[in-house]
Design a protein around this nucleic acid. Structure first.
Lengths: 347, 347
DNA sequence: ATGAAAGCGCTAACAG
DNA sequence: CTGTTAGCGCTTTCAT
C-alpha cells in the first residue's frame, strides 16, 4: 500500500500502441464507422490490452456532459413503514446504468432542530458546478419550490410525482396512479366478502392523499356501499393509524380498512392486536407501498405496490429525451400499480 | 423551456468583474491567506454577485480528484427485514458532504437468472475512468474478492465490515461489534427474567454470524445458563426463522429468542402468532438491525441497533486520511451498538 | 480515412 | 501579493 497506483492509460498511450494518432483512437470509440475495419480492430485491440477507459473529467470538460444524474437523498424515516426509497434508488441506478449514466447522491444539509431544512440546498451548487447533467426530483407535493425553482433556471429535471394542482408546470414527470391502486384494493376487499370498508387516509392538504382516497370512494360508490362516515383523515404515523382505527371500530364498525400507507395499516394492526382481533379473519386490512414491513409482518399485509422499476425506466427515458433536446410533448407518464395480496385480507 | 440555460460564470468572468487575474481568483478560493484582505473581499464579492462555483470537471481534470466516493448499491432484499441500507446511505451522504465529497452510486449489473452477479463489475470501469477518488465497500464477507482485488490495484477504499479471517488484509475498516451487541441483548433478556434463552443464527460459514453468536454464548455462560441445544443455525429468511422457532419450542422449550437478524426474529413472531403466544408476555424476542419492521411491528421488536451515522463518519474520516496519503496504522475502528428495547421483551 | 491544431476551465509553478 | 504560462485528457473543427 505504499507506492501510488499506476496512472491509467490515456488516449495517447493507446494511439502509440496501435500506431495511429490520438484522434483516430477517439474516433474508434465515438464514431467507429469512420474507421477502416482493420484500423478499428487494431485500435480496439490496443484498448483492450491496455485496459483503457476514457477519462471522465476530460470528457466532461470537453463535452459539457458529466453523465451524472443528481438525486437528493432524504433522511430515512424511522418508525414508519415507508421503505420504498431503497427500491427506488436501486431501480434508478440500474436504469441509469443502461443509459450510460451514474447517480450522484446529495443531501439537503444537516437537519437543525426546529429549522425546516432548505429543500433547494444542494441543487444550486451541483447545478452551477456542472456536476450533474440533470436531476430526478422525488417530492413534488404542492408548494414544494424545487420544480418551480429548477424550471426557472432551466435546469434539466424530471419529476417522480405529478405537478399536483400546478397547471403551469411544464416539466416531464412520471407517476403512479394511486387512485387506481386504491380502487383495485377496495374492489379486492369487497370481492373477498368484506362489506363495510373504511378509508384511513392523510390530512386533505396533500393532493396525493386525496387522489388515493378517490379510488376508495369510487369503488365504494360503484358497489353502493359508500358512506362518508367510514372515511378518516389523519397524520401518517403508526400511532395516528392506531387511534383512528380504534375510533372507527367503536363508531361505524367497519369490517375492513383500506389505508393510504403501510404505516397507517400497521397502526390498524396494532389496534387489532390490542383487541384480540385477527387481521384477515376478523378485519381486512390493506396498506400502500408494499414495504418490507407489509411483506413480513404476520400474517402478511395486503398492499398496493408501486412499479418503481418501471418508473425508473420511464424517468431515465424522459431524461434522455430532455438532454437530447427533444421537444417535450407536455404529457406525463402514469403507471398502474399492482396489488400484493397477503394474509390481512384472507378470510 | 425552449432556450438553453445560461452558461455558468467562469474564473475569467469573476476575474474581470473583480479587476484581477484569473489566478488571483483561484487563490481566493483555494489559498485565501495569500491575498490581501481588501483584494480578497473584492474577489469574494464578485464571486457572490455572479454566483460562481468552480467547474468540477475542470478542477477534476487539473487536480486528479473528482471529490466523489463510489458506493455499490445492492438490490433491495424483499421479504426480509434488512432495511438498514437506506439509513446507511443517507448517513454516508451526510458524512461525505461535510468532507466536501459526494456519493456516486453504481450497481453490479443486471441480475441474470441463475448467474451469480460479478461483484467486481462496476468497480473497474469507475477506477480506470478516474470517476471516483475512492470506494466504500460494504459486503466484506470472507471470500468476497472485492477487497483483495481493490488492494491489488492499489485502489483507495475503506471497508464497512472487518476483513474476517483475512490476516493479510491491509486496508482501513470500520465495523460494529456484533458480539457485544448480542451479549448486551442476551443480558437484557436475562435481566427481564427470561431464563432459557435460545440463539437463532446463521449458518456457520459466515464469520459475521459466528461473531454475533459468541455474544450470546458468553452472556449465557456467564450466568451459568449455557446450553448448546438452545442454539440453532439456519438461513436468513423469515420462513427459516419460523421453522427453527417451532422446532425449538417443541424441543428444548426456550422462553426467549435472541436472533442474528430482524428477519429471523420476525420468523419467530410468525410462529408465536400461529400458536397464540404473545411476544414479550409469553416469549421474549430480540432481533438485530433495528429495521423499520422491528420499529413498527406489534408489539415492537427489541433489536440491536448499529450506529450507522457514526460508522459513516468514521468511514469518511478514514477515507480522508487515506486520500491524504497519511500512513495507515493497520488498525480498524470497532463501534459499539445499542439496544432498542420494545414490547417483545416486556414481561 | 487519418492527422494537426485548438480549447473546454482550472490550478501548479514560477516570474515579477 | 499578483500576473503569466503551461497543461491535465479529451473531442471538435478543419485539412490532408
Amino acid at each position: 500500500m505504499s507506492d501510488t497506483p499506476p496512472l491509467p492509460p490515456t488516449l495517447a498511450d493507446v494511439a502509440e500502441r496501435a500506431g495511429v494518432s490520438r484522434q483516430t483512437v477517439s474516433n474508434a470509440i465515438n464514431s467507429p464507422q469512420l474507421l477502416r475495419p482493420d484500423t478499428l480492430s487494431r485500435v480496439q485491440d490496443a484498448i483492450e490490452e491496455l485496459g483503457y477507459t476514457p477519462n471522465r473529467a476530460a470528457r466532461h470538460l470537453r463535452t459539457g456532459s458529466s453523465r451524472l444524474i443528481g438525486l437528493r437523498m432524504p433522511a430515512a424515516q424511522e418508525y414508519t413503514a415507508n421503505a420504498a426509497m431503497d427500491r427506488f434508488i436501486h431501480a434508478l441506478v440500474e436504469a441509469s446504468r443502461t443509459a450510460g449514466y451514474h447517480v450522484l447522491l446529495f443531501s439537503g444539509g444537516q437537519q437543525v432542530e426546529g429549522v425546516r431544512p432548505d429543500p433547494l440546498a444542494g441543487y444550486d451548487a451541483l447545478l452551477r458546478s456542472t456536476a450533474v447533467d440533470a436531476f430526478v426530483v422525488t417530492d413534488t407535493y404542492l408548494g414544494n419550490p424545487q420544480a418551480a425553482w429548477l424550471s426557472e433556471r432551466r435546469a434539466p429535471f424530471v419529476a417522480f410525482g405529478r405537478p399536483w394542482g400546478d397547471a403551469a408546470a411544464a416539466h416531464p414527470w412520471v407517476d403512479v396512479d394511486g387512485a387506481a391502486g386504491v380502487r383495485a384494493a377496495t374492489e379486492h376487499v369487497l370481492d373477498r366478502g368484506y362489506e363495510r370498508v373504511a378509508w384511513l387516509g392523510w390530512r386533505p392538504d396533500f393532493h396525493l392523499g386525496e387522489d388515493r382516497r378517490s379510488g376508495w370512494e369510487q369503488a365504494m360508490a360503484a358497489r353502493g356501499g359508500y358512506d362518508g362516515a367510514l372515511a378518516v383523515r389523519t397524520d401518517d404515523t403508526v400511532h395516528a393509524g392506531m387511534t383512528a382505527a380504534a375510533e372507527l371500530l367503536d363508531g361505524p364498525r367497519p369490517d375492513a380498512f383500506v389505508c393510504a400507507s403501510d404505516t397507517l395499516a400497521i397502526g390498524v394492526l396494532h389496534t387489532l392486536a390490542q383487541r384480540g382481533l385477527y387481521p384477515g379473519r376478523d378485519i381486512g386490512v390493506v396498506g400502500f407501498d408494499d414495504s418490507q414491513v407489509a411483506q413480513v409482518v404476520p400474517p402478511g399485509l395486503t398492499s398496493v405496490r408501486q412499479p418503481l422499476e418501471q418508473a425508473a425506466i420511464e424517468l431515465v427515458r424522459a431524461l434522455r429525451a430532455l438532454l437530447a433536446h427533444e421537444p417535450y410533448d407536455g404529457g406525463g407518464v402514469l403507471l398502474a400499480p399492482t396489488l400484493a395480496v397477503r394474509g390481512s385480507t384472507a378470510r
